[in-house]
Design a protein around this nucleic acid. Structure first.
Length: 421
RNA sequence: GCGUCGGUGGUAGAGUGGUCAAUUACAACAGACUGUAAAUCUGUCGCCUUAGGGCUCCGAAGGUUCGAAUCCUUCCCGACGCA
């Protein structure tokens, strides 16, 4: 059984034990989805309400790529997520702070979040240069053998050190050491409404022993993140979410959920790189343990089928780069599945991307036109596709939310997924 | 009419006796993408194929050579120069 090395001290941070820990953020559950962990609610932040379940638009560098805030707003997005690592490197968190914080700086008046840089420990570290990402298709059984293949010499831009991570900037090669404290300091400078603890997102190819070691580290970092946050958060405007890890192992996942929920976080992130088939079980294990009254964010997930799965298993917030990345790369969501708009058949297809879609792109342009923009490498191509994709996903989550309120979730889910695949 | 240079796969453009079905780029075609090293990346790209190979090919036709996109001859076409 995993025993947290600092277990006695953690009591001090238990909810209630630390005195009047009044946060500006408030979470209210409006309705539960019977027989499941799912719920619909409202998350109040200093910059407005988020109706959950909600999809968070990813704006890593304080911009939703190719869209201005008015366009983002028009897709129905309520909250935007920036990134600690990227904004620290460029333009620098102090610039963002001096610019009035991430929201003001980027002219986004609504709620904001920042990720801690924990994902970059993974994407620039163990996953660097490999065919591993947030969702990994494990087809090669050798990747599943319970031995950590020693690739410590493999090139990577992030290396885990004693009490933090050294990053080699992908921009100029300079070395930066990020500790949990540093991540929180940066995030306080960035000034989002909701920030995340610094964690280590592990690769599913790591063996159990390593997962255990990494999990201990993530838990230590969680506590240090929380301590630093409480030190800096005198105005109590900023909410901190702790992150549950634990890979694909049930015991570790549950342990992590217990340890992280014992700390006085305002909400929780569920992190990790998954094999797709492991995701729903991992989410359920965790959300059965996390306190019901606090919001849960499934980090980096966002395909339609994943959203249904997440909601059903108690997730309140999702973020994902897919709508904008796929959009920029020419893949567009429709109710009958994704289409690659550059395919020959769309060159003379003058119908909208989706007939009954209310997004700006569908109301004004044809598939042929969008295809033309992509073939011509026009900037507007990525913009129009991103608008539609964001609208599609945000709207899907809104409809899922409404279906909970209407006691119609399962019918809606079956209906949608039947047409989608 | 004479002279010079040149004609290579959808396009541009390498290659100047064998390792060339022919570098490369673009176009085309298909695919991938899940807390953004991403307006990125991968594969295919003469024809046929039981994927081992087989066939045709570098303006055209002949020729030299064991072997030609590469050398020679003639012709056709283009650009420029001189008439």
């Amino acid at each position: 059984m995993y025993k947290h090395p600092d277990a006695p001290r953690l009591l001090a941070y238990r909810r209630g034990a630390s005195g009047d820990c009044k946060n500006k953020m408030e979470f209210k559950i409006e309705k539960k989805l019977k027989g499941t962990l799912g719920r619909a609610g409202i998350l109040k932040t200093p910059h407005g309400e988020i109706h959950t379940p909600a999809f968070v638009a990813v704006g890593t560098k304080a911009t939703i790529k190719s869209l201005n805030p008015e366009q983002v707003k028009a897709t129905g997005v309520e909250v935007v997520l920036g990134n600690t690592y990227h904004l620290y490197l460029q333009p620098g968190d102090e610039i963002v702070r001096d610019g009035g914080g991430i929201g003001k700086f980027m002219n986004w008046p609504g709620p904001t979040m920042t990720d801690s840089g924990g994902f970059q420990v993974f994407s620039l570290g163990a996953a660097y240069g490999k065919d591993i990402s947030k969702i990994t298709k494990i087809t090669d059984p050798s990747l599943l053998i319970p031995e950590r293949f020693d690739d410590s010499d493999a090139p990577r831009l992030a290396k885990i050190g004693q009490d933090g991570v050294s990053f080699k900037s992908h921009l100029d090669g300079s070395i930066h050491y990020i500790t949990p404290e540093k991540s929180i300091q940066i995030q306080h400078n960035l000034g989002a409404d909701i920030i995340f603890a610094f964690d280590e997102c592990t690769s599913p190819t790591e063996d159990l022993r390593y997962q255990e070691e990494a999990l201990e580290r993530t838990h230590r970092w969680a506590e240090r993140s929380l301590v630093e946050h409480q030190k800096l958060n005198s105005e109590k405007k900023i909410s901190l979410f702790g992150i549950v890890q634990g890979g694909r192992d049930e015991r570790l996942r549950k342990e992590s959920a217990r340890v992280i929920s014992s700390l006085d976080f305002d909400g929780f992130g569920i992190g990790g790189s998954f094999a797709k088939e492991d995701m729903s079980t991992a989410v359920r294990w965790v959300n059965e343990i996390l306190p019901e009254e606090k919001p849960r964010h499934l980090l980096g997930i966002g395909e339609p089928e994943d959203l249904f799965m997440g909601v059903e298993n108690g997730v309140d917030l999702f973020d994902c780069v897919l709508p904008t990345r796929l959009g920029r790369n020419g893949t567009i969501y429709t109710k009958t599945g994704k289409i690659i708009i550059m395919n020959t058949k769309f060159r003379n297809d003058f119908s909208p991307i989706e007939k009954d879609c209310e997004c700006y792109t569908c109301k004004n342009y044809s598939r042929a036109y969008v295809a033309h923009l992509f073939h011509g490498k026009e900037m507007l191509a990525g913009t129009l596709a991103s608008i539609h994709n964001l609208y599609f996903i945000v709207n899907l989550v809104k409809n899922i939310r409404q279906s909970i309120l209407d006691d119609n979730f399962f019918a809606f889910k079956d209906d949608f997924l039947k047409g989608y695949l």
